[in-house]
Amino acid sequence: MVLIGVLLIIIGFLFRINSAVVVTVSALVTGMIAGIPVKDIITQFGEAFTTNRYMSILIVTLPVIGLLEKNGLQQQAASIVSKIKAVTVGRVLTMYLLIREIGAALGLNSLGGHPQTVRPLVAPMAEGAAEAKYGELPEKERQEIRAHAAAADNIGLFFGEDIFVAVGAILLMNGFFEQNHIQADPIAMALWGIPTAAFAFIVHAIRLRRMDKKMDRRLGGQKKPLG
């Protein structure tokens, strides 16, 4: 019966109902079906909402990024890269993927992030690289490049961070095994993440190379002047 809440999430997702609404309704309905009094459900809801405030930490970075953007941060990043001729979109993003993954593996998760790094730096750098090579970009390619910039950040972060011992995921799993009287070692857990981390980097780097070739085919040839 309590699975109705999970079902609600799937239905809400399929019908493209606003996710924030779906999640809240699912939480309330699940609690009610499980027989938790409504007042307790709302109390648990508030408690968890407060505990998880750290998930919204990106708000503190907004004034910095906002002020810098107002003063042309994105244009500056793009202008630097557009001067380097050898750089391609794929190579810019592969370099960022590598930096992001190694950084996360060293516990430096804050070296990247979408509001902090991707929007002000990586996306304009990648777009700049493409503009230097192909001239003015069609909207479709511009969107594709931006999506790839965000993806490089996620992939680098996810497959890098579990190699760091003190990360939440490793601590969570170690704690879970301990509760179930199974002996585990956080350092070994972290080290056994390396094969997958290396594989993820290689696969994604190959895909970025292929994206470069695809753009060459679609946009290559004569360089159009920047508008």
């Binding site: 309590v2 809440g5 999640v23 648990q44 968890a48 998880n52 998930m55």
Partner: peptide
Amino acid sequence: GWAVLLPQLLATLGTIYTNAGV
């Protein structure tokens, strides 16, 4: 926009699921 709220709501959902025995 509203997406700023979602991570906090999702973590909250996880807590309720656990308490409900999902």
